[in-house]
C-alpha cells in the first residue's frame, strides 16, 4: 500500500516537473522559433505582415546569400573566432595559474590577493569602458604617467632637450579587443574550488617523488584539471563571442569588428527605412551557429567540468 502510494506520488511529481519544464522550454524556444521562421521570409512578406509573423517563407537561402554577399559577417565571424579564442585561452591560462598559486603555496598575502581578485569581479568591464579605452588607445599611458610622476621626464628634458612620450595603440587589433575582456578572474574561483577537492597529500607525494612546483603543475595538476579546463574554455569562448559593448568600442572599422557588432549594424540602416528584419534574423542564425554547435557537442564536458570535483 505504502509503496504504491509512493509510486503515485512520484508520478505526480513527474507530471508537475514536466509541466514546469515545458513552460520553461517554450519561454526560451518560442523567440528562437520566431527568429528562425522570420529568417526564411522575404523582406516583402515582413512589410506586408506589418511585423513578425509565423508564415514560413522560402527565402532562407536568399537571405543567407545576401548575408554573405552584402554584409561583412563572414569576415567578422573570423574576427569573433580569433577574439573569443584569445579571450578563452588567456582567461583560463591566467586563472589556472592564479588559482594554482593560491591553493598550493603558502604566503602572507594569500587572503589579501584573493580579496582583490573578488573585487575585480565586482567591477565589470562595462563600468570601466572609458578608462579601458584610454589605456588600449595608448598602452604606454601608464609608463608616461610614471615617467611624469617620478620626475624622470623632467630630467630627460633637462638633459636631452625633449620630453619623451610613448604611444602604442591596440585599437582595431584582436589582442586589443580580447585582452580587456580576458582580464577577469571568475575562473579563479572555479579552479580554486577544484584544486581544493584534490587529496591534500597529493602535493606532498609529488614533493617526496622529487617533483618541483612546475613539474607538479604540468605532470599532475594539469592533466587532472582537463574537465574544468575544457568547460571553462567553452564557457568563456561563448561569453566572449556574445560580448557587445567593448568590441563595439575597441574596433571601429567593419573589417575588425566582431560578428555580434556587425550583426547589430545590419539593424541600423536608414532612419526612414524599415530595418531588414528577415536579413537580421538570418544573420543572427549565421552568427550563433558556431557557439551553439560547440555547446551542443560539448555539453556533457561543460556539466561535468562545472561539477567541481576531481572524481
Amino acid at each position: 500500500m505504502k509503496d504504491s502510494g509512493m509510486i503515485e506520488n512520484a508520478r505526480s511529481v513527474d507530471r508537475a516537473a514536466t509541466i514546469v519544464l515545458v513552460a520553461g522550454m517554450s519561454f526560451i524556444l518560442i523567440p528562437l522559433a520566431i527568429a528562425a521562421v522570420t529568417a526564411t521570409q522575404p523582406y516583402e512578406t515582413f512589410i506586408e505582415a506589418g511585423g513578425l509573423s509565423f508564415a514560413l517563407g522560402g527565402h532562407f537561402l536568399d537571405n543567407m546569400e545576401k548575408i554573405l554577399s552584402e554584409t561583412k559577417l563572414l569576415r567578422q565571424l573570423g574576427n569573433s573566432l580569433a577574439v573569443a579564442t584569445i579571450v578563452a585561452v588567456m582567461k583560463v591560462g591566467f586563472c589556472f595559474l592564479a588559482a594554482y598559486a593560491l591553493v598550493f603555496f603558502e604566503g602572507k598575502f594569500r587572503r589579501a590577493l584573493f580579496a582583490v581578485m573578488i573585487a575585480t569581479v565586482m567591477l565589470p568591464l562595462d563600468l570601466r569602458v572609458i578608462t579601458t579605452y584610454q589605456i588600449v588607445a595608448n598602452v604606454a599611458m601608464p609608463l608616461n604617467w610614471i615617467l611624469d610622476a617620478t620626475g624622470a621626464n623632467w630630467a630627460i628634458e633637462k638633459v636631452a632637450g625633449f620630453r619623451p612620450y610613448f604611444r602604442l595603440s591596440l585599437l582595431d587589433t584582436y589582442f586589443g579587443t580580447a585582452a580587456p575582456i580576458a582580464a577577469n578572474c571568475t575562473a579563479v574561483f572555479i579552479f580554486r574550488q577544484f584544486f581544493l577537492t584534490l587529496p591534500k597529500d597529493l602535493p606532498r607525494a609529488a614533493i617526496m617523488d622529487g617533483a618541483g612546483p612546475i613539474r607538479f603543475m604540468i605532470d599532475i595538476v594539469l592533466p587532472l584539471s582537463k574537465t574544468p579546463i575544457v568547460a571553462t574554455l567553452l564557457f568563456f569562448f561563448v561569453g566572449a563571442w556574445t560580448n557587445y559593448l567593448w568590441p563595439l568600442v575597441a574596433a571601429s572599422t567593419p573589417d575588425q569588428q566582431t560578428a555580434v557588432v556587425g550583426l547589430a549594424r545590419i539593424a541600423d540602416s536608414d532612419i526612414d527605412e524599415i530595418p531588414q528584419v528577415p536579413l537580421l534574423m538570418a544573420g543572427a542564425l549565421f552568427v550563433s551557429f558556431i557557439p551553439v554547435a560547440l555547446i551542443a557537442v560539448m555539453q556533457r564536458q561543460i556539466v561535468r567540468g562545472l561539477n567541481l570535483s576531481s572524481r
Binding site: 597529500d201 597529493l202 606532498r204 607525494a205 617526496m208 622529487g210 605532470d219 599532475i220 587532472l224 576531481s310
Partner: peptide, 29 residues
C-alpha cells in the same frame, strides 16, 4: 629540501596520481 634527503613516504589517503596507471605511479619518481 625534501628531495635531497633520500626519504620516501606512504600517506594516509594513499595520494596516488589518479590519472596515471599503477606502473606510472610507481615509476614517477
Amino acid at each position: 629540501p625534501a628531495r635531497e634527503r633520500g626519504c620516501a613516504m606512504v600517506f594516509q589517503d594513499y595520494a596516488l596520481y589518479p590519472h596515471m596507471n599503477v606502473e606510472d605511479n610507481i615509476g614517477y619518481a
